[in-house]
Design a binder for these strands. Structure first.
Lengths: 153, 153
DNA sequence: TTTTTTGCAAATACTTTGCATAACG
DNA sequence: CGTTATGCAAAGTATTTGCAAAAAA
């Protein structure tokens, strides 16, 4: 399975429309807080933290609170409207330094190792990488629901 | 640049020797706490959290404290003797859902996007992935020191 | 013996939760 | 109007730090 990514970035209006559609589908109300938070993340190119989102959104909604930002970011993630860079809040460590992938289950938090098979390439680093800096570690992370949790549902 | 990973896992004794050599090189003392923590992570295959490492190490050193575990994990990471799954403690969000990579600078914490060029494949998912669960998100993370920080040093 | 490291305790992030009021549909 | 979402305050985790005593070189 290969993934490419050469589509141009979508227009904000297109994305807003999808956001609203998804909210309705999930039975979530389209509040101005949700819309502003969605726009802030969609338009930002700096991978903002919750705090940064708060600051940005306060320009339009001065009274919005940090916990609303957290709650909304979580529900936008749930709807696949944005993604969380990295992992959940707890750090996990791995002593195996051979290049391999981590499948992180969003349901139970379990981290599974996936080793590429003998004929597979673990990663192909994009050429852009070396222009950005010296790569010391590579970590391919997959997020989804593991077999065990799929059965429970 | 391609990375493969079909070497067998190294013996603990080999790894311990490297650990000790690296400590001396960096001028860090080889204490029993450091050795136990290193072994705990090196031998574990469950991507333990700091808390789990503490529990495991307490079998040998009942008085070891959680902050020593944190400090040691950080220095082992610094020496490239283990890796942190995910990121640092603060969550960051990305509204761009096209498959792309993140270069995380371990110095300044900055997250850079790297988009594969038109002729490049962003990722090749290993076949093992689908046996583990349903992949909903893919995130290739590179860690290293960015150009800007390299210049400062 | 000198310097680093540890364990303790306390402080500091960061994130989540309960609840009354406000806002959406 | 009924129900959901928000803001506030407070609680809950995860992680970091200052410092005196203990341990490594």
């Amino acid at each position: 399975m290969q993934l490419h990514s050469h589509e141009p970035k979508e227009e904000l209006s297109t994305r807003l429309a999808r956001f609203e559609a998804q909210c309705r589908e999930k039975g979530l109300r389209v509040t101005k807080q949700r819309r502003e938070i969605f726009c802030a993340v969609a338009q930002s190119c700096e991978h903002p933290s919750a705090e940064k989102v708060l600051v940005s959104v306060r320009k339009a909604l001065p009274n919005i609170s940090l916990d609303t930002v957290y709650r909304t970011l979580a529900s936008l993630e749930e709807m696949d409207l944005l993604m969380r860079v990295g992992l959940s809040s707890k750090a996990r460590f791995d002593g195996d330094l051979r290049p391999h992938c981590h499948f992180v289950c969003t349901e139970c938090g379990e981290v599974y190792d996936i080793f590429p098979q003998a004929d597979e390439t673990a990663f192909t680093l994009p050429r852009g990488a070396r222009e950005t800096g010296g790569v010391r570690q590579v970590n391919l992370q997959l997020r989804g629901i593991c077999k065990k949790c799929q059965k429970k549902q």
